[in-house]
Write a protein that binds this DNA or RNA. Structure first.
Lengths: 257, 257
DNA sequence: CAGGCTCATTGACCTAGATCAAGGCCGAAC
DNA sequence: GTTCGGCCTTGATCTAGGTCAATGAGCCTG
């Protein structure tokens, strides 16, 4: 399996000349645009400084891997820009996307020293990377960061259970509606416009997330467009025309619409 | 929605007469049969004593609820005997079972003060119950118990991702095979026989766990029986006759068998 | 500004699994 | 020991969504 990952290190924009002994830029965390919604929320400047000592910035291009299932789980990551997809593969190539990550989300939890899924950039991604061992050392000193990680993992678990309900029991129409709602609430959480909701991933990715095929995703979206529930905007973005209708479909309350 | 839960409190078998000031039985945790595989693993006698102060034993009969989705999430539980199913419902009654719990498993993690799923006894269940607030107080004092909880939650998350792959992309045959393998490894972890694997839940529960119908579960099991991969024993238990074949089917490597 | 990508859409048809419908097989109740 | 009520199994049929195939709509690139 070829490894197309990208590792453009892009930290330390400060000049190399001036500072004396050691160059530790503790600013990147201080001015992090997603800090307040990430694992790093609620940390003091002191704690941020300790984090900055171990963090590395990283960018990954569209379609390139961040890590692959089975890789040695050396680091945790925090998404600071772009969109990431997580997925698992069957030997014959069938794929299930287990989640899309947006700025503020973290990834890299592993059970036995290995990542249990692959992670790939859906669009150009910016990450900060925390090597596991030193991160754990820092977290041992600042338990509320660990608590924060636990909370985020619990949220992820709840989302996973919702997704099981979707995959096991919802119709194609309900899946698409639920997905749009997820994107809306995700955008909302990040303070972004909820209505023309951005769809950064392609139909194939949506299909592999919802347990459908690209054709069914396309047909279902067309049908919802025809029914006036949504409209397509440029860039493939989706305008929700009938929010109540969409909510009802997603909940499984409306047979036709 | 009627609430058929059962709350037989069954702690303190010691006589009420003898002891002086306060009766605190710290034995139940000390002699807990599942302690080493539960959240309580690795605790010192001292720590166990603190736990015993807040724990309550509880039994729940087959088919009765432990709690329901949306209930105030007042407690965490540890299964000490029997089997529990967790599930989510759609308004029209469609159900997705998100997991089966066995002795040693815990339940009750919640995101915003409410349980995100319902829990019900598949067969008579014994639990120990930890009220959330005092438990958190205890865990603040003993961080490795929190760490243990985090590890178990991470394992659950990994299992949830496997289940998404199953629900989104596997065939009925692959789902049944994967399910039997799950039961095997769960039994193994608890030191129980792996080969005639016990199937304590009925076909409807299996169906709602695997995103199928009872009929399809039944037919698929019959087909695997006919193919010589498994055999049914009394009590509905399953004898795995061709372990390699079963493994191959579950992984999605074998079209026919 | 034509050729060659990739991705989305739509149509025609097919199939895995759902649905509908009997029976069969217990174990519990009397 | 008969009746009853769950389950489980099996058969017949249906259908939501998959598969196969064609066409269209951007976009790079040269």
């Amino acid at each position: 399996m070829a490894d197309p990952r990208t590792r453009t290190l892009a930290s330390k924009t400060a000049p190399e000349a001036a500072p004396p002994k050691q160059v530790i830029d503790f600013d990147p965390c201080m001015r992090c645009n997603v800090r307040e919604m990430s694992v790093c929320a609620d940390l003091t400047p002191d704690e941020l400084e300790h984090l900055a000592e171990i963090v590395t910035d990283q960018t990954v291009d569209t379609g390139h891997a961040i890590f692959s299932e089975g890789d040695d789980a050396g680091s945790l990551f925090n998404v600071t820009g772009g969109v990431v997809k997580l997925y698992k593969l069957l030997p014959d190539g069938r794929r299930q996307i287990t989640g899309f990550l947006f700025p503020g989300d973290f990834l890299g939890l592993a059970v036995n020293e290995q990542y249990g899924y692959s992670a790939e950039a859906v669009e150009p991604v910016k990450l900060c990377r925390f090597p596991r061992v030193p991160l754990e050392r820092v977290m041992d000193r600042y338990p509320h960061m660990k608590a924060r990680l636990f909370t985020m993992a619990s949220n992820e678990l709840a989302a996973a259970q919702d997704q099981m309900l979707l995959l096991g029991r919802k119709t194609a129409r309900e899946r698409i509606a639920s997905f749009l709602l997820q994107l809306q609430s995700s955008a909302k959480r990040r303070g972004q416009p909820v209505n023309p909701v951005r769809l950064p991933m392609n139909r194939g990715d949506i299909a592999d997330f919802l347990g459908l095929t690209t054709e069914t995703v396309s047909r279902t979206i067309s049908a919802m467009k025809r029914a006036g529930v949504i409209a397509l905007r440029e860039g493939g973005n989706v305008d929700v025309r009938d929010q109540d209708g969409l909510d009802a479909i997603a909940a499984g309350e409306r047979a036709e619409a």
